[in-house]
Amino acid sequence: MSSVGFDTPDAAPGIRLSGARLHYEGVALFDNLSLNLPAGRTSCLLGPSGVGKSSLLALLAGLNAAAEGKIEASDGAALQGRVAWMAQQDLLLPWLNVQDNVTLGDRLRRQPPKHARRLHLLEQVGLAERADSVPAALSGGMRQRVALARTLYENQPVIFMDEPFAALDAVTRLELQDLAGGLLAGRTVLLVTHDPLEALRLGHHLLVLTGRPARISEAFAPPGMPPRAPDDPSLLALQARLLAALRRKEGA
């Protein structure tokens, strides 16, 4: 499909966050936190609930006015306007059909929708036949696939994902991980998740956020390239180790 030229965004920059700080009702969620996201790679951020993973992601996406921190892109340009964001909720607008939800960004920027690109993405997520359906007529997995298509339609070099598959059943989640793993290639991605297997399947690098104020562990890279097979025995061994580490840190 390279001739279509849809799926290569501008060169994806690396991202460096430093001095991140967020106080919530007098408690420091994180303070002077640093984070490195390598260019064109998927980094997965793991950690227990309430540790501040989503707040950190919102800070990077420019959605958290209460948090502060210095965000730099490796190419020196501003990050603003080069980010696509995907949340745990599909956030589909119920009054728009599937294809209009995918092209919502163009509607908001008052640009005409790119028909070919929209169709191509809907084919990739397997929903080309449902282009005219309303979200209410779709299953949870289908809705999240539309949300994935909408995220990719933005064609941004940087993608922030906040537990995008957490609300799905196990089988649907595995399918969507396969799909996302392929489609996210070449972009700088930060994927927040509480599922160690998801992180091991999709991440080039894994980061663990724990403690209060939260600290980020050394980056850890599983062998091989994502998306990794879920039944890979080495992956399962790593999952057990990762779970043990998460539990230890939570207990500490």
Partner: peptide, 27 residues
Amino acid sequence: TDPGWLALAQTMGGTRYAILRHIAIPA
């Protein structure tokens, strides 16, 4: 308006007017 919709629209570069017209009013 669902704060998630507003956040999404913000990352998509929607102006205040566009967000009002395409998200807040229909919602």
